[in-house]
């Protein structure tokens, strides 16, 4: 690769087999991290309002995370001065819909800082925003690990897990009555859902749903993610239940690890296991008087026809 292409990785074109996409890097992953954790936290903060718990700090933290995510992706676009054009494509694009929902979420969140009763409805645009993020990935037909239908429950469950994690982490610092009991239950449910979906997602990708190189990344990530990002927080949650004197610290640790696990998942899926489709032919041609031959799909595992 030339120096010029080194400096502009979007220009890279590497051979026949699927190669790692370079159009979206950590800045784009930042949008999914901030958006997922932020909306997850906003959903829990909104739910807490139904139990008489109101915290401006949690509300602000949730909005700030979403805002940071959007700012992060703003740094990635080629023509930042035209950023508002992102609102034109609502008919088809989930990215536009995400931006439109943000246009509801931020004013509503700001209003809820002044009128606490409004917190009870903040979960609606927050959940919609999280859903849009999942659909953004799912609509990306060129990246096999993103277009899987299982990406939808995976992004939703990790968003809730990250938000519940942030809630348990920040709650003791800002909630006078401490964390409500259901906080831990939400986290454990979201973690269970996340690891459950992850197992199916990973299996589908490894079984031919993704290029070999992307599947290898997921395989390498699976162990640390399952144990470190999901089992460990559950262990801390159990510890919090068994040892009430350590409960606050254990819940915070569980929350932090669950959140970091989700961030690692997104960094992995968006920037590391994001190999493109590559190229394939269904048949080799007949040349001259010769016979035609088999097809070719480099970089993909051969899957028996009855499994496709």
């Amino acid at each position: 690769m030339s120096e010029q292409e080194e400096a502009q990785p979007q220009m890279r074109h590497l051979g026949l087999a699927p190669w790692l996409q370079t159009a979206w890097d950590l800045r784009a992953a930042g949008n999914f991290i901030g958006g997922g954790s932020g909306t997850g936290l906003l959903i829990l903060t909104s739910a807490a309002a139904y139990y008489g718990i109101y915290s401006r700090v949690l509300l602000l933290a949730g909005l700030a995370l979403v805002g940071l995510g959007l700012f992060s992706v703003f740094l990635e676009i080629g023509r930042p001065l035209r950023a508002m054009n992102v609102l034109f494509g609502g008919k088809r694009s989930w990215m536009t819909r995400e931006a439109m929902v943000a246009g509801v979420l931020f004013p509503l969140g700001a209003a809820a800082l002044v009128y606490p009763d409004l917190v009870k409805v903040v979960w609606i645009p927050a959940a919609a925003y999280l859903y849009c993020q999942a659909r953004i990935l799912e609509a990306t037909k060129g990246i096999p690990t993103w277009r899987s239908p299982l990406i939808l429950p995976l992004i939703l469950s990790t968003g809730i897990a990250e938000g519940a994690g942030a809630f348990l982490l920040l709650g003791p610092l800002v909630l006078e009555a401490g964390i409500p009991e259901w906080g831990g239950a939400v986290l454990i449910s979201a973690l269970a859902a996340r690891v459950f979906v992850w197992m199916f997602y990973r299996r589908r990708m490894v079984d031919g749903g993704a290029p070999v190189a992307a599947a290898a990344v997921l395989i390498a990530f699976s162990g640390p993610f399952t144990i470190g990002g999901n089992v460990m927080p559950i262990v801390f949650l159990v510890l919090a239940g068994l040892q009430p004197d350590m409960a606050v610290a254990a819940l915070a640790a569980a929350g932090l690890i669950a959140m970091l696990g989700g961030w690692a998942l997104k960094i992995t899926i968006v920037t590391k296991a994001a190999h493109n489709q590559g190229f394939a032919i269904d048949h080799s041609p007949a040349r001259g008087s010769g016979e035609s031959g088999v097809g070719f799909k480099p970089g993909w595992r051969e899957v028996p026809k009855d499994k496709t």
């Binding site: 159009a23 979206w24 784009a28 676009i77 080629g78 037909k141 190229f279």
Partner: peptide, 20 residues
């Protein structure tokens, strides 16, 4: 009109798009 978000580059399964 394009803002260069790169989303289309990723959505294309033929690797046909570029951004310089």
């Amino acid at each position: 009109i394009c803002i260069g978000c790169g989303y289309c580059i990723l959505a294309c399964p033929y690797q046909a798009r570029y951004k310089v």
